[in-house]
Amino acid sequence: MQRGKVKWFNNEKGYGFIEVEGGSDVFVHFTAIQGEGFKTLEEGQEVSFEIVQGNRGPQAANVVKL
């Protein structure tokens, strides 16, 4: 599992990016966020996640808020 901080997340569009220290930013879609109810992330929030290869490159999967 990787760890990072949410760079930004757009609730209306349902996606954003996670900053990884020493690495490239990783795309995150709301469907990758674990948990119940409305799935969103806050700027600066710490998360753990896996990186998978999506249609447009690397993206976050199994995102857990820390």
Rank of each mutant, 00 (worst) to 15 (best):
residue 2 Q to H: 15
residue 55 N to Y: 04
residue 20 V to M: 11
residue 56 R to C: 06
residue 63 V to W: 01
residue 54 G to W: 04
residue 4 G to T: 01
residue 63 V to P: 01
residue 66 L to W: 13
residue 31 T to D: 04
residue 24 S to Q: 12
residue 4 G to N: 02
residue 57 G to N: 03
residue 8 W to R: 06
residue 56 R to D: 04
residue 17 F to D: 01
residue 42 E to D: 13
residue 9 F to A: 02
residue 54 G to K: 09
residue 23 G to V: 11
residue 35 G to N: 07
residue 40 T to G: 08
residue 53 Q to D: 14
residue 56 R to N: 14
residue 36 E to V: 12
residue 65 K to V: 11
residue 28 V to E: 00
residue 19 E to W: 12
residue 21 E to P: 14
residue 40 T to R: 09
residue 13 K to T: 08
residue 37 G to A: 06
residue 60 A to C: 05
residue 54 G to E: 05
residue 47 V to S: 00
residue 18 I to H: 01
residue 4 G to W: 00
residue 28 V to K: 00
residue 49 F to Y: 09
residue 13 K to Q: 07
residue 3 R to F: 12
residue 57 G to A: 04
residue 54 G to P: 02
residue 41 L to F: 03
residue 43 E to K: 15
residue 13 K to P: 04
residue 39 K to V: 06
residue 52 V to S: 11
residue 6 V to C: 07
residue 43 E to S: 11
residue 27 F to I: 03
residue 52 V to K: 12
residue 57 G to D: 03
residue 20 V to R: 12
residue 62 N to D: 15
residue 57 G to K: 06
residue 33 I to M: 04
residue 41 L to I: 13
residue 20 V to H: 15
residue 52 V to R: 13
residue 61 A to I: 14
residue 21 E to K: 11
residue 15 Y to C: 03
residue 23 G to K: 15
residue 64 V to D: 07
residue 32 A to P: 01
residue 45 Q to V: 07
residue 52 V to T: 14
residue 34 Q to V: 15
residue 29 H to M: 03
residue 52 V to E: 12
residue 1 M to G: 07
residue 46 E to W: 09
residue 65 K to D: 11
residue 25 D to S: 08
residue 36 E to K: 09
residue 9 F to P: 00
residue 26 V to S: 03
residue 34 Q to L: 11
residue 52 V to H: 09
residue 43 E to I: 10
residue 13 K to W: 06
residue 56 R to I: 04
residue 33 I to Q: 02
residue 19 E to Y: 06
residue 53 Q to I: 11
residue 22 G to F: 11
residue 39 K to H: 06
residue 31 T to I: 02
residue 34 Q to E: 09
residue 31 T to Y: 02
residue 51 I to T: 09
residue 43 E to F: 12
residue 23 G to A: 15
residue 53 Q to N: 13
residue 45 Q to R: 09
residue 22 G to A: 15
residue 49 F to G: 01
residue 53 Q to F: 09
residue 23 G to F: 09
residue 16 G to E: 00
residue 25 D to M: 04
residue 65 K to T: 12
residue 4 G to A: 05
residue 53 Q to W: 13
residue 26 V to P: 01
residue 32 A to Q: 15
residue 14 G to Y: 02
residue 37 G to Q: 06
residue 15 Y to I: 04
residue 60 A to R: 01
residue 42 E to S: 09
residue 54 G to D: 07
residue 59 Q to S: 12
residue 19 E to N: 12
residue 35 G to I: 05
residue 59 Q to C: 08
residue 35 G to L: 05
residue 38 F to N: 13
residue 38 F to C: 05
residue 27 F to Y: 13
residue 53 Q to L: 10
